[in-house]
Simulated scan of single mutants.
Amino acid sequence: MNAGAPTILVADDHPLFREALKGAVEKLLPQARLVESENADSLFASAEAHPEADLLLLDLNMPGAHGFSALVHLRAAQPQLPVIVVSAREEAGVVRRALEHGAAGFIPKSSDPATIRAAIAAVLDGGHWSPPQAEHGEGLAPEEAHIAARIRELTPQQFRVLGMLGSGLLNKQIAHALGVSEATVKAHMTAILRKLGANNRTQAVLLAGRLALDPDAAIAAD
């Protein structure tokens, strides 16, 4: 942990749970500086603005951060930043996948404040923390690990474009949202397809869907 007041990033789209996390942090570390985010874009901006941050508490299902994609991207872009996943999904398989994607800890949202504080303290001390069910979860399937490695190669802007593709936006809409030209979006698309080994945008979205919490359901719904 950095000397002086630690900086903790709190990323969750539910204000009440953000308050609960902040309360747990403040009781453990009264001097901590807390930086809140309620969606993926604000989280990425906060992580870039605070490279010295000591910890990220990350919800898996914020807007723009579906499944493990944001965790995978952040672990590549900010490898010095420990991440604790905080999720209402408490199945053993979800916990194990989060840890194998690089999370230093996993806190179920049903945890009591004392457990949340214990997990945060363990990770800030350089350790790991996970609930007991992590031992019984299945690890990453080879295909998911392979896709995660490819996702790590995307630049932050390419990752945003891929997320917008998954939301069904067209190039023109993506260009408007990002404040860039359609030609720039097309260039990003070309790089995304190459890095993911995809032939078209539909296949790229399907590949990224392997990092969803329920990848088989996501693919079946497509």
Rank of each mutant, 00 (worst) to 15 (best):
N2E: 13
A5W: 06
A5L: 07
I8P: 14
F17E: 12
F17S: 07
R18G: 08
K22I: 11
A24L: 05
L28V: 05
Q31T: 12
Q31A: 15
S37Q: 10
N39W: 00
A40V: 11
D41F: 04
L43Q: 12
F44A: 13
E48N: 08
H50P: 13
H50D: 12
E52K: 12
D54T: 02
L55I: 02
N61S: 14
N61Q: 13
M62L: 11
G67H: 01
S69H: 06
V72S: 02
H73R: 15
R75T: 12
P79M: 04
P82I: 06
P82H: 09
A88V: 05
R89I: 00
G93E: 12
G93P: 04
V95W: 08
V95K: 09
H101W: 05
A103K: 12
P108D: 03
K109F: 04
S110K: 09
S111R: 03
A114I: 00
T115S: 13
R117M: 11
A121P: 06
L124P: 14
G127R: 02
W129I: 01
P132W: 01
E135P: 00
E135A: 14
E138I: 03
E138H: 14
E143T: 12
E144W: 03
A145V: 05
H146K: 10
I147S: 03
I147E: 05
A149K: 10
A149Q: 13
T155W: 10
P156V: 10
P156I: 09
M164L: 14
M164C: 05
L165V: 00
L165F: 11
S167Y: 12
A175H: 02
H176C: 00
V180D: 01
V180T: 06
V185Q: 11
A187F: 03
H188M: 04
M189Y: 01
M189T: 04
L193R: 10
R194D: 13
K195M: 04
K195G: 03
G197I: 00
A198F: 01
R201A: 07
T202S: 14
L207W: 01
L207S: 05
L207A: 09
A208G: 15
G209W: 01
L211W: 05
A212T: 07
D214C: 02
D216V: 08
D216E: 15
I219D: 04
A221G: 10
D222G: 14
